[in-house]
Design a protein around this nucleic acid. Structure first.
Lengths: 189, 189
DNA sequence: ACGACCCTACCTACTGGTAGGTAGCATGCG
DNA sequence: CGCATGCTACCTACCAGTAGGTAGGGTCGT
């Protein structure tokens, strides 16, 4: 029990650290202080920082894809579905954190290859989900696509991702949702 | 002469380092290796890393605001003006780098306060410029604003910023321009 | 008794930054 | 002219601190 507690505590704290300081800037020392075990003991749970980083993304990816699937199955109007997507994307920012993979993408060149691959996969997952929703919405004539579904998916994801960067820099998280809503409304018929 | 050469070489190399590795992840050692002077000698030109970082943003900001002013004065259709803006924003990404302030915004919490302020100022500069262009375009009836000029400016900047993150993660810089173009076209009457 | 868990103590590599010195060029002065 | 002075630009050598990671031992529940 204690094992799981500590391990998940490590993951939780590591995530907030990465999402505020970035992957390069956070250290095992920071982490040990927050969790309350010695620095060396972290290695018992995560042999290297890279392993920790990968576990972080894997967990994030799993949570996200579960939510996406759930949302996908929901019986909802397309634009409402997109807004809900934006909400739980932006929701993580309410506590004043960057989205994990946005934070990771920034010092991407510094990341080990295994992590870079996962980050890429994360974005691809989002894009394929968005594309499917958009295609379905277009088929049902609930939305009107300007360009291809692929391009529109990119537009939606980019906006959400970028809005979180801008919001973070301006120290004003409230800008995200209205911006995204405006974009979705533009797409709605 | 050699002074200026070395100093500007330091700035140039530091910029590419920040824009690939992030601010936290690059070191004076990396920089000294690239420029070809010893690590300690960098301190002669930039007493601390923070001073270097600030000089970096200041230069970037100066260059950008000059370009913005030039573009502002140009006699152009509004949507063409926006596309040109997008082009020189995306232009810096053709060499496979993140935009400077995007890279900096990511590990913002790690940055010294003086740098955080500059990053914020950078985004504000962009937003006010975009807002002015949008307002003018709306007055001339060259574009049709869905929401407020402020919100639309945020949307444009966010999209550009986010697209560069996504492009960087996917290792495909070609996605940026079409995405931005689609957004601008949506705004065009 | 065994393994999970966490500890102290330690390692090497490297961080940003400092101390002090030197080569070369410019300026000023007798 | 010769020569001291002082500046720029860089050097070597080093600092304390911290990075991620390792070795080995103690404690505790099963």
């Amino acid at each position: 029990m204690a094992t799981l507690d500590t391990k998940s505590a490590l993951l939780t704290e590591a995530e907030t650290l990465v999402r505020t300081l970035g992957y390069a800037a956070f250290s095992y020392a920071d982490l040990s202080e927050r969790v309350g075990i010695r620095k060396a003991s972290i290695h018992h749970h995560f042999s290297t920082k890279e392993v920790l980083g990968n576990a972080l993304i894997d967990g994030y990816l799993e949570r996200f894809s579960a939510q996406l699937e759930e949302l996908s199955a929901a019986d909802m109007d397309t634009s409402r579905k997109l807004l809900a997507y934006g909400d739980f994307f932006a929701g993580s920012l309410d506590d004043g954190l960057m989205p994990l993979c946005g934070a990771l993408a920034a010092d991407a060149a510094y990341l080990p290859a295994s992590m870079q691959r996962r980050v890429k996969k994360f974005f691809e997952l989002h894009l394929t989900w968005l594309e499917a929703v958009l295609r379905e919405g277009a088929a049902r004539r609930q939305i009107k696509l300007q360009g291809s579904a692929h391009k529109s998916a990119l537009l939606l994801l980019s906006t959400l991702q970028g809005a979180s960067v801008v919001a973070w820099a301006l120290k004003d998280p409230s800008v995200i949702k209205p911006v995204f809503r405006q974009l979705v409304e533009t797409m709605a018929k």
